[in-house]
Nucleic acid binder design. Structure first.
Length: 787
RNA sequence: GCGCCAGUGGCGGAAUGGUAGACGCGCUGGUCUUAGGAACCAGUGGGCAACCGUGGGGGUUCGAGUCCCUCCUGGCGCACCA
């Protein structure tokens, strides 16, 4: 018996299940039910990604408590999921906001800290001065706080980080092992990690006993360097200028209208060229990123677009060091080096190797691999999240708690209406006496990013009751998740964080697992036509009626314009509610529609015709099994065998739309032949294959026809029944189809040609022509080549 | 700008380099019905035809929707990443 861990991304309990969830979970459910029938040991859990900002917002808006709001949403959404008749392991259920989940996450935090993978450092954050809180990037709209409208300021705060950069190389390399992941997701992760190979070069500052480090992927162009540019946040800036001037410059940078426009402020220092006996100016430039490389660059205007633009604006020299013939500058391509005594005549790649060797010898630089990915900042100045198990002393030092001191329980009794972080305001919780030192101390009031919660939930599902985060031997046995199904919107963050967690936990707990998700399947979104009144007011599809070919709003008779199909969203009102659909069409028809109209990884357009025809199919299958007539022959058996084979193949490939086609094909055939199987044993086979897709119908038919409430194992394919002994053989002349002939498989070429030449269609085409070649792909095609 | 993916009937979509359009929706005609978002039967890429047809152009091959080159269009992702 082999294990199959099938997992759908767990939902955020926002209040209601939407159609996107339904599609996601139906896809997973079909896989899980199939594997169960196959006799596999299936793990198919469900839980709740229950911490997060919406709960706090709702609490403020509706004067409720985040916990009450969340738990009641979970209850409601669980009821909805139960109605979907999903075959889930509810005994594995977990919610990340419950103490019996997050206390183990606090243990993992301690593990990560002890392994050197969690650390604290200062970082710049978006600060809302009115609400006295940090805002996430997406909560800053046009530089203003989304709730207060106050101008957000950058603030330097001490924050916790996870050292994902330690794993950058492995996270990149192991993407190659993920053969069952969509290429698209892997590409996105690859770009996010952003590995680039280049060099770090040390520029001596002429006026100071100090160097400026820069990173470049083009050290070969060093002879063309005519300036240095640093980011406004570079430490050299604060060494030279006072705070007021820096802020003035920063403000100037911020006020640029065109964010591509390059501006620079010349500093009164110069850098020595590492090879040539000359000095080049140093600028603070708005286009130098402070969070990439060293936050400093050397400018080679002749061979870099941005440097070129900058040099033009500030009249800096442009020295050509790559022979690009008549090409206009800047020229970024390859070519022979010129004006570069040590490198002249070499091509780019060779020159890079040479110059790095020179840097190493002269102590002016070295080869450097740089990654775009930065360490994961996990501190959130928010109440509704997992408390970080750290305490601070009055002298500013801190201590990460021992596991025996856990859990740090999130206090229930808080006031969210006050400004700022509710935990910071909750002094009775925050202020403690350290039990180890008896010193006054206060708790860390930041909570963990909710992406931490979802980075290991798939491990906790293996045993949600064990009194430690997880059991390593169990993890080794049941991980990785065999099929992970969810939306592409998590292509980077969640999936990358989870991969990092898996690797970190592997190293801490000596696991044998490198990757959390063996196969990733990203389902497409559900779209729906949009409807608007002439006043541009969005209208729900259910309100729209068609009258004499015109669309009208049911109640008011307003004219309605139909817009393009877009992702279902509340704001555009183009949603359909799962509860209503289930009520009107039933669960099986809903399941069928979720998979029928397009491949599961593409978008699915919701249409009334679509759901109705799914309903019709379910009814038709039901009706089919209401009588027994016709003669069962070998051909019928073969057809059913083919059906079993196709359904199986298509479920395994996630080609679920083709499963629906298989069902139509089978019943079209049976009805055409006027064979109604009723309780013949062949019906059993069909019902088993239908079970993953339409479980309710299949189960009820099984009860009616066979008085059984259980299914046998998935049928073994009788391969001999899949073999056709007669085939339709296409006959081509010059590669063009002329006709097809009905013949036995395994015909002899000589004999079949004889009969082919007798055919009128062929005779006509061959008139006056000589056969020069025969291509016979046995049992597939015959192609006659004539002169 | 860079990267990735995709362009097939009226529509959604099928096709290990080997009969393009499976299957469904829609549509047309018919049957049954008091009625039907029901069911059933027949038809449905274009063209009267020879033939022509998988975004355009070229190539490889006996044979291309499929492989290669190139261009166009659309979608997604990243975006001053040095």
């Amino acid at each position: 018996m082999s294990k199959k861990y099938i997992l759908e991304m767990f939902p955020y309990p926002s209040g209601n299940i939407h159609m996107g969830h339904v599609r996601n979970y139906v896809i997973g459910d079909i896989c899980a039910r199939y594997h169960k029938l196959k006799g596999d040991e299936v793990i198919h859990p469900m839980g709740w990604d229950a911490f997060g900002l919406p709960a706090e917002n709702a609490a403020i808006q509706f004067k409720t408590h985040p916990q009450d709001w969340t738990l009641s949403n979970i209850k409601n959404m669980k009821d909805q999921l139960l109605k979907l008749n999903l075959d889930l392991d509810w005994d594995r259920e977990l919610a990340t906001c419950n103490e019996d989940y997050y206390r183990y996450q606090q243990e993992l935090f301690i593990d990560l800290f002890n392994a050197g993978l969690a650390y604290k450092k200062d970082a710049i954050v978006n600060w809302d001065p009115v609400d006295q809180t940090v805002l996430a990037n997406e909560q800053v709209i046009d530089g203003k706080g989304w709730r207060t409208g106050a101008t957000v300021v950058k603030k330097n705060l001490s924050q916790w980080f996870f050292k994902i950069t330690d794993y950058a190389e492995e996270l990149l390399n192991d993407l190659d092992k993920l053969t069952l992941w969509p290429e698209k997701v892997k590409t996105m992760q690859k770009n996010w990690i952003g590995k680039s190979i280049g060099a770090e070069i040390k520029f001596k500052i002429a006026e100071k006993d100090r160097f400026l480090n820069i990173f470049t992927t083009r050290p070969d162009t060093i002879y063309g360097a005519t300036f240095i540019a640093v980011s406004i946040n570079h430490e050299i800036v604060s060494e030279i200028l006072d705070k007021v001037s820096i802020e003035k410059i920063r403000k100037g940078f911020d006020e640029v209208n065109d964010d591509k426009e390059k501006i620079g402020i010349k500093l009164n220092i110069r850098c020595k060229h590492p090879i040539l006996d000359k000095e080049i100016p140093v600028y603070i430039a708005n286009f130098v990123l402070d969070n990439y490389g060293e936050g400093a660059i050397f400018g080679c205007p002749a061979h870099d677009e941005r440097d070129f633009e900058f040099a033009k604006k500030y009249n800096l020299p442009i020295i050509k060091v790559i022979d690009c013939m008549d090409s206009e500058l800047p020229y970024m391509g390859d070519g022979k080096l010129i004006n570069s005594p040590l490198l002249n005549g070499l091509n780019k790649d060779k020159a890079i190797v040479e110059i790095i060797e020179y840097f190493i010898k002269s102590g002016t630089g070295r080869e450097k691999i740089n990654y775009k990915i930065r360490d994961w900042g996990v501190s959130r100045q928010r109440y509704w999240g997992c408390p970080i198990p750290v305490i601070y002393y009055e002298d500013g030092t801190y201590r990460v708690l021992d596991k025996s001191e856990l859990p740090v329980v999130l206090p229930y009794d808080i006031n969210l209406q006050d400004k700022g972080n509710a935990l910071l305001n909750k002094e009775s919780w925050r202020n403690i006496i350290c039990p180890k030192t008896n010193k006054k101390a206060y708790r860390e009031t930041d909570t963990l990013d909710t992406f931490v919660d979802s980075s290991w939930y798939y491990i906790r599902f293996l045993n949600n009751k064990i009194d430690k985060p997880f059991d390593p031997s169990q993890a080794n046995e049941y991980l990785p998740v065999d099929k992970y199904i969810g939306g592409i919107e998590h292509a980077i963050l969640h999936l990358l964080y989870s991969r990092f967690f898996m690797k970190a936990l592997r190293d801490i707990y000596k696991l044998k697992i490198d990757e959390p998700f063996k196969q990733l399947f990203t389902q497409g979104m559900i779209t729906h036509k949009t409807y608007k009144t002439t006043n541009n007011e969005w209208v729900m599809p259910i309100e729209v009626i068609s009258k004499n070919g015109k669309l009208l709003r049911h109640k008011t008779n307003e004219t309605i314009e139909e817009g393009p199909s877009e992702k279902m969203s509340k704001s555009k009102k183009n949603v359909v509610e799962p509860d209503e659909i289930l009520e009107n069409y039933g669960i099986d028809a809903t399941r069928v529609f979720m998979i029928s109209d397009s491949p599961p990884d593409r978008e699915l357009e919701w249409t009334d015709e679509g759901i109705q025809s799914s309903k019709n199919l379910v009814n038709r299958v039901h009706r089919y099994f209401s009588e027994k007539k016709g003669d069962i022959n070998l051909e019928i058996e073969k057809e059913i065998e083919k059906f079993v084979h196709n359904i199986e193949k298509n479920i395994l490939n996630f080609s679920l739309n083709k499963c629906v086609a298989d069902i139509y094909t089978l019943f079209n055939h049976l009805e055409k032949k006027n064979v109604y199987l009723y309780n013949d044993k062949l019906s059993k086979k069909i019902l088993i294959c239908l079970f993953p897709i339409v479980p309710k119908l299949s189960k009820s038919l099984n009860e009616t026809l066979f008085k059984s409430d259980d299914f046998e194992k998935w049928p073994e394919i009788k391969t001999d029944l899949l073999i056709e002994d007669r085939i339709k053989l296409p006959i081509q002349i010059q590669g063009k189809l002329i006709t097809t002939i009905d013949t036995k498989k395994g015909y002899s070429e000589k004999e079949i040609l004889k009969s082919i030449y007798e055919l009128d269609k062929i005779k006509n085409k061959m008139h006056n022509k000589k056969v020069t070649r025969i291509i016979n792909v046995q049992d597939k095609i015959i192609n006659i080549i004539v002169n």
